[in-house]
């Protein structure tokens, strides 16, 4: 087998199944609150499977709603448009992929990890007074390049898995050793292909390489996703037997200024949100 290059994989992203139209529209408006909510609500309601998944989570104990929410319009009234947008995009992205063909890849563990990073990134964003919604999405998408690799080049991904099994190293290191690049680079390109806001694409691309200490004290989205990834692996919500906590970069960790008390709060909130959202996966 010839190992594919990054350009070849990026070219193959066009062959991936497209997301539902309304999900694409919601992604393009991410972080923007000046949108035509009624039109988007109708679009969500017209996709029955998507609406059903969304309402399942909207009615979960996590949101603590008194009474039942039966329609997307009601969900928007009760939870707010921003929350519903996060629910719908999560349901749309997590269910748009074909069943994986790569041996050793478990899509449910993949999405449980993605959801735990998203939940943690949102919680960390609140801690750092950043926009929770965009950080949630960056967390959800942080490993999407791995899914794209599995979907387009399952043999190359299987090679990376074999390398990891032999060396007991992080999968990202195996990807670099086998392919010469990693899933974060593919993920950044896929986000750009989907025309997701650039700050999110950049954070996805740099989540294993956050900025060094020399850039200053301002927390970046890549810092949040990087630290959320480490916390999520440590917190073990995904169920990956071979999981391995990546070493948190001191600069990114330092910029988030977490102490024992705030870290404890982050863990509690992450766990609560994860269990609320996990219903969306099936």
């Amino acid at each position: 087998m010839t190992t594919p290059g990054l350009a070849q994989i990026v070219g193959g992203l066009r062959t991936l199944p497209s997301l539902p139209t309304v999900v694409m529209e919601l992604l393009h408006t991410m972080g923007d609150e000046d949108v035509d909510i009624d039109r988007l609500a109708r679009g969500i309601g017209n996709d029955q499977a998507l609406a059903a998944r969304t309402l399942r989570v909207a009615n979960s104990p996590f949101y603590g709603i008194q009474g039942k929410v039966d329609t997307i319009a009601e969900a928007i009234t009760v939870l707010g448009f921003v929350n519903v947008r996060s629910l719908v995009t999560t349901a749309g992205i997590a269910t748009a992929w074909p069943t994986s063909a790569a041996a050793g890849f478990d899509a449910r563990i993949f999405w449980r990890h993605s959801l735990s990073v998203a939940s943690c990134a949102e919680t960390l964003a609140r801690h750092a007074r950043l926009r929770p919604e965009t950080h949630f999405l960056a967390g959800l998408l942080h490993d999407i390049g791995r899914l794209a690799l599995v979907a387009t080049h399952p043999d190359a991904f299987a090679d990376a898995l074999r390398h990891r099994a032999l060396n007991d190293c992080a999968l990202v290191e195996s990807e670099r050793a086998v392919l010469g690049f990693d899933h974060a680079e593919i993920g950044g390109e896929l986000c750009r292909h989907w025309r997701i806001p650039g700050s999110i694409a950049d954070a996805v691309e740099r989540h294993h390489r956050p900025a060094p200490a020399s850039v200053g004290a301002t927390v970046g989205m890549a810092d949040v996703v990087h630290v959320a990834d480490a916390i999520a692996h440590a917190f073990d919500l995904a169920g990956d037997r071979d999981a391995r906590v990546p070493v948190p970069e001191a600069a990114a960790w330092g910029r988030l200024a977490l102490d024992a008390t705030s870290l404890r709060t982050v863990l509690e909130k992450t766990e609560r949100q994860f269990h609320g959202f996990a219903n969306i996966l099936g």
């Binding site: 007991d168 190293c169 992080a170 480490a230 916390i231 692996h233 440590a234 917190f235 073990d236 999981a243 391995r244 906590v245 990546p246 070493v247 948190p248 970069e249 001191a250 960790w253 330092g254 977490l258 024992a260 870290l263 404890r264 863990l267 509690e268």
Partner: peptide, 29 residues
């Protein structure tokens, strides 16, 4: 034991203290 396994790639006495802080917080939880 599960946490020790998960943190096998981190040096809890080095790594700038972040890994240790995270290990302790998750274990406490």
């Amino acid at each position: 034991q599960r946490l020790v396994h998960l943190f096998r790639g981190c040096d809890l006495d080095e790594d700038g203290g972040a890994a240790r802080m995270l290990f302790d917080a998750v274990l406490e939880r």
